[in-house]
């Protein structure tokens, strides 16, 4: 599927069904790699796909879970946890990543801008 940019600056990257519940996929937006996660049936999160601990673009392939109240993904390389809401790396805050705006509209998954 090609990505489409809506009038308001959101990019449609895929359909909800394209993401297996409790896993992630990687989307390419303006040459940037963004990991998009579906948690449970409907909840979406997005953070950078690049893992600064490993210098590899792999976060979309990590395991999704929770640490206390936080929803996290564990990097598949060295297993650091990233908070899906904020991009914060729990074990190495200096290696945190950006979180992205993401939303569901009529079955489409839309990506916005990095949240600063």
């Amino acid at each position: 599927m090609e990505d489409r940019v809506t009038a308001t600056g959101w990019t449609i990257v895929c359909e909800l069904e394209d993401i297996v519940p409790d896993t992630g996929v990687c989307a390419l937006v303006d040459d940037q790699q963004v990991a998009v996660f579906r948690v449970g049936e409907q909840q979406l999160y997005a953070i950078d796909n690049f893992d600064p601990n490993a210098n590899a673009c792999v976060l979309s392939r990590g395991l999704v879970g929770s640490v206390g109240e936080r929803v996290v993904v564990a990097s598949p390389i060295y297993k650091q946890h990233f908070d899906l809401r904020t991009g914060e790396c729990l074990e190495a805050p200096e290696h945190s990543v950006q979180a992205w705006q993401v939303k569901l509209e009529g079955g489409h998954v839309l990506l916005g801008q990095p949240q600063r």
Binding site: P21, A56, C57, R61, L63, P76
Partner: peptide, 22 residues
């Protein structure tokens, strides 16, 4: 299978060993 897929460690999910560069 759909119900088990999200449980697998990345290596099992893609049926291959991930290397340092992905």
């Amino acid at each position: 299978q759909k119900e088990h897929a999200s449980l697998q460690d990345s290596n099992d999910y893609f049926l291959a060993n991930i290397q340092k560069d992905g």
